[in-house]
Design a protein around this nucleic acid. Structure first.
Lengths: 344, 344
DNA sequence: CTGAAAGCGCTTACAG
DNA sequence: CTGAAAGCGCTTACAG
């Protein structure tokens, strides 16, 4: 059932059908009505393959991808990009293009990069919402140009409608609470470690902390939970207060709210802290080594590569099929233990 | 860079290029050599979209899907099928067809259904390896017709090469050991519950049991692990031996190797077994209810829908692009706790 | 052994 | 306001 049959049924040419399908105008009310009726009755659906085959040569779909700098080889932000390029590989014959933009740590740098993006004509933007004000600006401008924006990694409050493909960090914190509590119990002591950057704590790290505490609220246990806020770019400094917390034989559970759980084991052994269970985020090399070594007990995977992959794929589906149902996506809170890697 | 440019470079017509690309023969050695050289130099890649647009109307790709009966509404086997139909929905405009076959509990029924499949002409078969002998027969016949076969759910030993898209059940058992051990510790008692069907224990249930025991071996703890083999289609019967196992105040961990963990809580309360942690497989309605109720502590998700989806998608990629790298697939051992469902 | 032509279903520029 | 025609990149049946 193609455009040709529809044309025959309506006694018009395929050009006219196309004008109706794409609301290109220049069709009499009457003809339009007749055609719409037939489309509805026959349940006609456009063949996207044929459509893209034609369009790939005349109207490219262009994405701007704006991520934090991927300076070093192990940078986390390489992973979403890998996913982006995997998706691109699948879609390039359909006329999809991707341009890469980066920003450094500052909001000014993000602003500059996003302005550069608006100088060109993209069909959609994929980025990361680290700076609320600048994201609102970006979103507003994108809206006025009818460009969808997909944010990866973190969800924040914004003024206009945006899509988020990210893990629910509150849930991740709750799950972390459940798991550590299983090992440590209600009589033990808990530590939340937030590694801060120049701008303070990252939004999703805070959401994870809140989720962690919410878990203990939900089970009605009044356990001891200390928060340790520690600047990055510094060797981990143990304050006298922390030292006193660490003392004692009771079980301890440490929840690192970002990817730096690997900083902790060294401290623990230096201060001879025992009976301790440690969990954190992300399957980076150092974290995985400590997981193998039983010094990290759980890691939560955010599937960063998949986030990038699915952002491109689902934006493409949205732009070609108007189906935005998969642009608002929960990445599952995937718990990893040592044994997950035992078959590799 | 399309077939047209290649033709121009080689000073031949596009028909001849196509003959070389598809090894259709009827091309002189010399011309072929020249063309292959140009293809290599230019890095030409066939545009699959254009190819499928044409082929969709002349050469359909047909899959036979053979699963256990999906008699009742909650049948597990509906889920892979949902995935199959989701994939079909995406691929049908590319000329993909799926036929559904079912088998009942017996190997004879499986045999009969697979014979019916071979009466028609399919490009690939997707099924479940419950019967070793019959699967070997099927695989042999498929091989002689050059049909790939993808098995879902379970991996078993077979004589010929086959693809498996399933969870590594041994790893799943190890992960289960790790988690239950975290809750129960080394001084507790462990129970493995295998629910048997007419043919005895299912292969992947056994693999899970082995993995569970292997975990305790790996950590060098000599803990008490009792295996309870219980027939299905029967109310759960507690033998005097089991009753004696259940007694005592020590912590207990129960690992149900299939989807029936939901049978256990009732027994436990009837026999007043306390201090018990329970884990099993699959996110069926009853299991999820007990998870919410803190009577099941962990569930492992096998992503059955995704298994069906990815089987079709990746078979399609294999048949159209010769890329079989994703037909041998490990479904991650996804651990679910109550909090995973807290945002729904 | 090779080429020219028709066609897959859709899109668009042009002519009327 | 509408139609006829060319074309996206590939495939194949036909003619030579």
């Amino acid at each position: 059932m193609g455009i040709k049959q529809i044309a025959k049924l309506a006694n018009v040419s395929i050009g006219t059908i196309d004008r109706v399908l794409h609301k290109r105008g220049g069709v009499s009310k009457e003809t339009e009505k007749k055609i719409l009726k037939i489309i509805k009755e026959t349940g006609y659906q456009k063949n996207m393959t044929a459509s893209r085959l034609k369009l790939a040569s005349v109207k490219k779909i262009k994405f701007a991808v704006l991520t934090p700098e991927t300076d070093n080889e192990y940078s986390y932000w390489r992973l979403p990009k890998e996913g982006v390029y995997k998706a691109l590989d699948e879609l390039k014959e359909l006329g999809v293009k991707v341009d890469d933009y980066q920003f450094a740590g500052s909001s000014a740098s993000f602003k500059k990069a996003s302005e550069a993006i608006f100088l060109k004509n993209y069909d959609a933007i994929i980025t990361v919402p680290f700076f609320q004000e600048e994201c609102n600006t970006l979103l507003k401008k994108a809206k006025s140009r009818n460009m969808p924006v997909v944010f990866l990694d973190t969800e924040i409050e914004l003024n206009d409608k945006a899509y988020f493909i990210r893990q629910n960090s509150h849930v991740a914190g709750m799950v972390a609470g459940r798991l550590l509590h299983g090992l440590v119990g209600s009589s033990g002591k808990y530590f939340i470690v937030n590694i801060l950057n120049d701008r303070g704590i990252q939004v999703n790290n805070k959401q994870r902390e809140d989720g962690f505490r919410a878990f203990f609220d939900s089970i009605g246990e009044d356990v001891s939970i200390n928060t340790i806020n520690h600047p990055l770019n510094d060797t981990f400094r143990v304050t006298p207060e922390m030292e006193s917390w660490f003392k004692g034989d009771d079980l301890k559970g440490i929840f690192v709210t970002n990817s730096r759980a690997h900083l902790i084991p060294e401290i623990l052994s230096k201060y001879e802290v025992s009976n301790t269970f440690l969990m954190g985020f992300d399957l980076n090399k150092k974290n995985l080594e400590y997981l193998q070594d039983n010094q990290i007990h759980f890691l939560i995977n955010q599937q960063p590569k998949y986030q990038g992959y699915v952002a491109i794929k689902n934006l493409f589906n949205f732009l070609t099929k108007q189906d935005d149902s998969e642009l608002q996506l929960d990445i599952p809170v995937e718990i990893m233990v040592k044994e997950h890697f035992s078959s590799l």
